[in-house]
Amino acid sequence: MSENVRFVPVPSLSEVVEYAYAASIEMPTRLILTAGACPLDEEGGTVCPGDPVGQAHQVMTNLEKALAASGSGLAEVVRTTVYVASGRQDDLVAVWEVVRDRFDGHRPPSTLLGVAALGYRDQLVEVEAVAVARRAPHRERPGPTG
């Protein structure tokens, strides 16, 4: 793995998962690639079985935690993919409304998909994101000495 790539640990999220919650890549702008945020609580249990809207709220909370641990946030997201384990368009739309509302007017490109199944027991929703890192605070450059 390149020294420019760093997988970001997120201590406030469950360690049950078998992947990094986020990765950052050092470039002129640091790029953040998240794993799909799942509706898991801190112990690794799926929240709100049977309730895609309830799961969407937990997913977005978990996505925000992964982004924050990576030095980013929802306002820096440049792309999302939203997966809903349902063949009902009403379920997809209801989940999308939660995702959209959490972005609070920020409108990154997104794909919304209905899928047959997701990886965890009782899981109905997953959201992955690509973001850029927040800019470092402005630092005063020292003036010439002499």
Rank of each mutant, 00 (worst) to 15 (best):
M1E: 09
M1T: 15
N4L: 15
V5I: 15
F7N: 10
P9S: 06
V10E: 12
L13M: 06
L13W: 12
S14V: 07
E15G: 10
V16T: 05
V16E: 12
V16Y: 07
V17P: 00
E18A: 14
E18I: 00
A20F: 03
A20Y: 04
Y21E: 04
A22Y: 01
A23N: 03
I25Y: 05
I25D: 02
I25T: 08
I25E: 02
E26T: 15
E26G: 12
E26Q: 13
M27I: 09
T29V: 12
R30K: 15
R30S: 12
L31Y: 07
I32N: 04
L33P: 02
G36I: 01
C38H: 10
P39K: 02
L40T: 00
D41F: 03
E42G: 04
E42P: 02
E42C: 05
G44H: 06
G44A: 05
G45I: 06
T46V: 13
T46P: 00
D51K: 12
P52R: 01
V53A: 02
Q55T: 09
A56K: 00
A56F: 00
Q58Y: 10
V59Y: 01
M60H: 09
M60Q: 11
M60I: 04
N62Q: 10
E64N: 13
K65D: 11
A66G: 09
A68C: 10
A68R: 15
A69L: 15
A69D: 13
S70F: 02
S72M: 15
S72T: 14
S72H: 13
S72G: 13
V77I: 11
R79D: 05
R79H: 11
T80M: 13
V82C: 06
Y83T: 01
Y83Q: 08
Y83V: 00
V84L: 04
V84W: 01
A85G: 08
R88V: 09
Q89T: 12
D90V: 14
D91G: 07
V93E: 14
A94I: 04
A94L: 06
V95W: 03
W96Y: 07
E97V: 03
E97Y: 05
V98Q: 03
V98M: 00
V99W: 00
R100Q: 08
R102K: 12
R102S: 04
F103K: 00
D104L: 07
D104Y: 07
D104K: 12
D104M: 10
G105I: 11
H106V: 14
H106G: 04
H106P: 02
R107V: 08
P109Q: 11
P109H: 14
P109F: 15
P109M: 13
T111M: 07
L112Q: 05
L112P: 05
L113R: 13
L113D: 11
V115R: 14
A116T: 09
A117M: 06
A117E: 07
L118E: 13
G119S: 14
G119C: 14
Y120E: 14
D122R: 06
L124R: 03
E126V: 10
V127H: 01
V127F: 03
V130C: 06
V130K: 01
V132S: 05
V132H: 03
A133P: 05
R134K: 14
R134H: 10
R135P: 10
A136V: 09
P137Q: 09
P137L: 05
P137T: 04
H138Y: 08
E140D: 08
R141S: 11
P142L: 04
P142S: 10
G143R: 14
G143T: 08
G143M: 07
T145L: 08
T145Q: 11
T145S: 09
G146W: 14
G146V: 13
